[in-house]
Each structure stands twice: as C-alpha cells, then as structure tokens.
Write a protein that binds this DNA or RNA. Structure first.
Length: 491
DNA sequence: AAGCTATAG
DNA sequence: ATTTCTATAGCTT
C-alpha cells in the first residue's frame, strides 16, 4: 500500500459509493525512512451514507460521517503499519484544511477528529481554527502572515532577534485577525494583493480564516513537472568557480534525468535491455541568487530573491551513447554559459550565494500515455479486488476481538486525555456532548468493507443509535463502532 | 515562453 | 532548531 494506492482506493470508493468530499489526511510519521510513499501525505474521501450534499448537512449527519471516516482511517493506519511497518498520523474533518490542522494534535501515531458542531455560534470549526497563529494556516505562509500580522498589530511586529525565518513573539491568532476592525475579504485583498499575488487572494484568505476550504484532492502526477539541482555557497565570484559548479550541478542533473525519466523495459526481441525516455523536458533554466550588497550600517539584509533565465534544452542531452561527462561539457558550452552571460552580463563584480539548474516543460513520450489521464482502469479494478479480498480474508480469519488488539490499539489505549485543545473526538465519555475534549479515538475494523455491495442500497436508514454514545451508526459499521467503545472505555 | 513571487515539506 | 534543497502553483510580461 503506498500513497497512490490510497488515492486510488478512495477514488474507487468515490465512484462506487457516492462519497462526498470529506477528508482525512494521512501522514507517514517517518518520512525519512523508506520510499514506499510518493508523498508524505494524502487526503482521502470518506463515505457519506446519506448521500448528502457536503454544504447542507446537519451536525448529526456530519457526526456519522466523521465517525465512519475515523474508523476507516484507523483501519488504514493499521494496515499500513502491518504491511509496511510505517506508523502514521491522521486528521479527520470536512476539508483538507481542517483535516490537516486537526491531524497535528496527536502526533505521532495517532488520529484526531474534529467533531460537530460545525456551524452556529458554538461551532468547533471557529473555536478550533481561531486558536491558531495566522502563519500556521496552510497557504498562509511567510509573506502573507507578515502582512496580516503587521496590519492587525497596527505596526511592524517585533521579531525574535537573530531569527531569520518567521518566529515572532507577538503571536497573532486567526481569531485576532477575524475580529480585527473592518476585517473583510476586501481589506485582505488590499493587504495581500498586488503584483505576483494570486487573483482573489483576499477572498481566499478570508475563507481560510473562517475555516472554509473547498480545494480538491488532486491526482498524484506520475511525472514530475520539473527536475532541478541547486547548491548554495559562501561566495561564488570567479568564472572558474562557476565552471566547476556547472560541472557538479550539471552532472547531478543529467544523472537525475536518467534515473527519473528513463524507463528500462527489459523486454526486447534480442533480449537486450532497452532504455527509453518516458518524458522529455523542453526547457533549461539557470537561476542564481546574488548576494545583496551591504547596507549603510554594515549589516546585510537577507534576501532570498532569485533571478533566472531559461531557454530550450538541447536535444543531445538525451543521448544514451555518450558519457555524462561529455554531455555536461557540451551543455555548459552551448547552453549554460550563454545563459549565465545573459543573467550576469558583467565579467566580474557579482557574488553568488546560490546556483540552480533545472529542466522543465516535460513532454511525455508516446506509448507512455495511458487513456483517461494516465490511469490504467483495468489494473485499478484488479488492484481493488485484491485489496478488498485481503480485507475480507482478514475479517473471516481473525475473530473481531483479536482484530482490534493487534498493533493498532496500544497507543490509543494508553493515551491520556489531554486537556485544553478545542477539539472533540468521538469518545464514549463525551457524555454532555457539548464540551470540548481532546484524545485519540477510534478503533477500526474492516467491517466497513465487508459488505460493500450494500452500502448504498441501505440508505433507508438501517442504522441504529449506539447504546453508549447515542450516535446514529449505520448497521454495517456498528460492530466496528462497538469495538471502538470497548477500547476506549477500558482506559 | 520566460521571469518572478510565494508556498510546502 | 534552523537552514538548505527540491518542488509546486499561479501571477505578469
């Protein structure tokens, strides 16, 4: 199971079972270990038993979906650890934004669900998101948080001395921003808009601040859209140094192109191994970061500004008969040096702190494209059968009581409820329903998949109320839910 | 297409 | 804990 499997899996559920765009985000806990994942995180869809429009749901309906999503997430984490040995962390909510944020509360090897209410004056969404520093919100990064912070404070925020990246002691929370006088999409647009800014950035930021995010889960791309190599330097100011770095970076880039863009189909009529390019980049880019000159007071302002030039990538770099060294020399002479002269016309006086060379504009070669946007449908279904079969077998072979114990449960049982974070998880002890709690939650089971054929058909409310927590649970998930209770009540 | 800004991990 | 390196999206020209 890797990331694309998870994405595929969820996509198939989406197609077959009318899933809505509710999300969980799964993050592998140790991204440095192993390469089974293409990415460190993935958002998944969640089953929506009532077929509701995601924008028009009561908190009761939402609650069911979130609990089911939690069960599914628990199973996937469990499966991932069992099969691959990777632990992971999951956040469950109604959008990528909320799922990502809530997922960070119980790390590593945990999962957290943001529970209803999602609307009204006591909305957990508001309570939850308001507590975050503005810069912690995904897609509000260094520059935007700076601008917003300064406006809310009415002055330039004081920063920790010596800190270059971010870090202010004057924390401005999302709540502070939201409640600032005259705060509006228009004001944010004024603050954040301008050259280079995304169109409608004010409105988008306003949505994020309110916890609204309608961004979609995107397909993992098979091909990277660019490959680049860079290095930073204390000082790079002579042509011979540049040449030396060109050779190092160029060699590295060509090697990367060969490993990432070359496919070796061993099949060949003569039995000789064939290698062919699965994508050809069309553009070469050279960027540098010139070291900024000293200020009047002798300090040097930090700029991260890069400048670049790009042009057509010569075709000879795709030659597999010539050595990389030869190709690099040719590339330097025909492309990189001319580009460098365009970037730095002066023969001296420059002082570079960074050089980057990269290739972009990938064009997939023929025979490599698969219909329907790069996905093999037949294979997909075959894989699905396998996945479903595995789960079913597990169900039959392992008695439910045993199923819940192996591997996934221990950390969940052991966890102490942590206070003060405004997040609610499905928890048996959440008796009053209204108060906020924080703890990990749900055990899972594969019952979710067991009778997958009936999921949609039994819309006509075959669910029952859970005796313990009162949540309405569809029948197919009740066994899983009860196991969840038997776990968490034993704490 | 090229140049650039901003962001994430 | 911070910096470096890689990659992406989307703007402007």
């Amino acid at each position: 199971m890797d990331c694309s499997d998870i994405v595929d899996f969820n996509r198939q559920l989406l197609n077959r079972h009318d899933l809505q765009h509710s999300f969980f985000q799964l993050v592998r806990d140790d991204p440095t270990q192993g390469f089974e994942f293409d990415a460190t995180s993935v958002s998944g869809h969640m089953y929506n038993p009532a077929g509701l429009d995601s924008s028009d749901q009561s908190d009761d309906e939402l609650r069911i979906r979130l609990v089911l999503g939690s069960h599914l997430a628990q199973h996937m984490r469990h499966k991932l650890e069992e099969d691959k040995g990777y632990t992971s962390t999951v956040g469950i909510s109604t959008s990528k934004l909320l799922a990502k944020l809530v997922g960070s509360l119980n790390k590593p090897k945990g999962q957290t669900t943001l529970m209803p209410p999602y609307s009204g004056t006591t909305s957990n969404v508001t309570t939850f998101i308001d507590a975050h520093d503005i810069g912690k919100i995904p897609n509000i990064g260094f520059k935007m948080s700076h601008k917003i912070r300064d406006h809310v404070l009415g002055r330039t925020a004081a920063y920790d001395t010596g800190l270059i990246y971010g870090g202010t002691k004057e924390s401005v929370t999302v709540g502070d921003v939201r409640c600032t006088n005259n705060m509006s999409p228009e004001l944010l647009e004024k603050l954040l808009g301008g050259a280079g800014a995304e169109r409608g950035i004010g409105a988008k930021a306003w949505q994020l601040i309110k916890g609204i995010d309608d961004s979609e889960v995107k397909e993992i791309r098979k091909m990277p859209s660019q490959i680049s190599i860079e290095d930073s330097y204390i000082r790079l100011d002579t042509m011979s140094q540049i040449m030396k770095e060109f050779r190092i970076l160029g060699t590295s880039l060509l090697k990367r192109m060969r490993t990432d863009l070359l496919e070796s189909d061993e099949v060949d009529s003569t039995g000789i191994e064939q290698a062919r390019w699965i994508a050809l980049p069309k553009t070469l880019r050279l960027s540098t970061r010139p070291r900024p000159p000293l200020n009047a007071d002798g300090t040097r302002s930090r700029t991260f500004q890069r400048i670049s030039r790009s042009g057509p990538l010569p075709n000879f770099v795709f030659s597999l008969s010539e050595s990389i060294d030869t190709l690099v020399e040719k590339l330097i002479q025909t492309a990189l040096l001319p580009m460098f002269r365009r970037l730095h016309p002066e023969s001296h006086g420059w002082n570079l702190s960074l050089m980057n060379i990269g290739v972009t504009n990938m064009v997939e070669t023929a025979s490599n494209d698969r219909s329907g946007g790069g996905r093999d449908i037949g294979n997909m279904f075959k894989r699905q059968e396998e996945v479903l079969k595995e789960w079913k077998i597990e169900d039959r072979d392992v008695p439910p009581d045993v199923l819940e114990i192996h591997q996934c449960g221990e950390d969940l049982q052991a966890r102490e409820p942590v206070s003060e974070t405004p997040v609610v998880c499905p928890q048996p002890s959440a008796g009053s329903g209204a108060e906020l709690q924080n703890s990990a939650g749900e055990t899972f089971t594969s019952d979710l998949v067991e009778d997958e054929g009936e999921w949609i058909e039994d819309d006509d409310e075959t669910g029952s109320l859970c005796q313990t927590c009162g949540t309405s649970i569809p029948d197919f998930a009740m066994a899983a839910h009860e196991r969840f209770h038997s776990h968490t009540t034993s704490v």
